[in-house]
Nucleic acid binder design. Structure first.
Lengths: 251, 251
DNA sequence: GTGAAAGCGCTAACAT
DNA sequence: ATGTTAGCGCTTTCAC
């Protein structure tokens, strides 16, 4: 069964009795078209259910589509959702659409999805880097595509980054516990080789060292177990169990 | 400062010493190119950091981009996140990218964002309908773009829908409480004119009526308050407070 | 196995 | 204010 054809600007122009360019102007610079002409074109467009082809427009203009790519690790992490929600909110205010992809936290996935997003000519690429290296994006950066790292800095790539103060936050948290009188403060986290974890652990150590408690080896529990398990084990395995503990979640 | 130019297939072909079409074939039907030629082309592409232009390819092919649009109400609702996560997971397995937009739960927003997604030639449009009417999508459906409603049926539009069994679920929940001996079972929900709410309320009423408790007017609390507030009020305002209650969340 | 010409739908540059 | 020509980067004929 033959589907009806999609109407093009040519069809609209023909029906409205104007040139293709005039019809085009109605969409790109309407003030340069006489009001009467404009109405005719719009009426024709409605009749034909015309929808401008963004692909053709972008191709001709040589720019990017009104989209911004967001590349995250895995979709199920609620932290990424919060990030995506904030980004989407800002973008929609500017008439941009969010294009999302997830790398499933694999090196190969990250590059593959970044490639897909870039070949769709997104206006910018926001990413939460999870691969060990983002140098594969350097060419794109040199071509002028903004690449921005979120939550973690990119590695081997000159890119702006939006980061949290992980180290200072962890330090202050530890200081607060120290001020409350705690001395044996445990630090629990997954051993993932992630920037945020490094920073938080460093902040914790700084605070402990400043309080004269520099030897924290016995208090640091790096494992992939859920926090509660780790807490229980930490409490049982030690002669002097911690009086405060510290779950550093991934994100 | 002049940015370097993006390499095109022509550049690659020239550097590799082949015709444009041969270079093209390396990407679309590589088995039809001699292995040696293919390697030359790929080497040239790497040197030039060539990335095929999906826009141009799609435009010429006359099809759709390898993307699927998802239109949701508001980004902050965790239910939509779960939906998006599931969709993204399935899509990525097929090499498709998710393009998201949120209508901010306004009629005008829904149509505007749907338009943006469609003019980017998504392969399909998945949507959680929130406007009162989706007939504006009928033209697109006739053009062959799959439009699928998620969580709520579309109105005035012939479209497949993926729905939960809201009515049966609510009925069964009420029955379970009835079987547990409860009689005054309250139903709390926002009064939003949403399909899911209608269905759940209907299921609740069915179960109550079947138990000979047809007059549920005093037990239904429809307001936009947070559930806890409504519970408190329901308990205080009634001579005989409910022994079980029912928060029906939006989603 | 490879190439030349035409054209997808649109807009920039230059008319008029 | 409106029209003409050319061409964005790619793929589809149809050649060779």
């Amino acid at each position: 069964m033959a589907l009806p054809q999609r109407a093009t600007l040519d069809d609209v122009a023909r029906l409205a009795g104007v040139s293709r360019k005039t019809a085009s102007r109605v969409y790109s610079e309407p003030e340069k078209v006489a009001a009467a002409t404009r109405e005719q074109v719009l009426a024709a467009a409605r009749r034909l259910r015309f929808r401008p082809n963004t692909l053709a427009r972008t191709l001709r203009r040589g720019g990017t589509t009104p989209t911004v790519g967001l590349l995250i690790g895995e979709m199920s992490n609620p932290f990424y959702h919060a990030v995506a929600a904030g980004i989407e909110h800002e973008l929609s205010a500017s008439g941009l659409t969010l294009v999302m992809g997830s790398s499933d936290d694999t090196e190969e996935g990250e590059e593959r999805v970044a490639d897909a997003l870039l070949s769709q000519r997104v206006a910018a690429l926001l990413m939460i880097p999870s691969a060990a290296d983002q140098s594969y994006l350097d060419g794109e950066r040199q071509l002028g595509t903004p690449v921005i790292a979120v939550d973690r800095p990119a590695r081997n790539l000159l890119a702006d980054a939006v980061l949290l103060q992980n180290r200072a936050g962890a330090r202050q948290a530890a200081e607060a516990l120290l001020n409350a009188g705690h001395r044996r403060i445990a630090y629990l986290a997954s051993p993932a080789d992630i920037h945020t974890q490094h920073e938080r652990l460093a902040g914790y150590r700084e605070a402990m060292a400043a309080a004269g408690l520099g030897d924290t080896a016995a208090l640091e529990h790096l494992s992939d177990d859920v926090v509660e398990d780790a807490v229980a084990r930490a409490a049982l395995d030690t002669a002097e169990p911690p009086t405060a503990w510290w779950p550093a979640t991934t994100g």
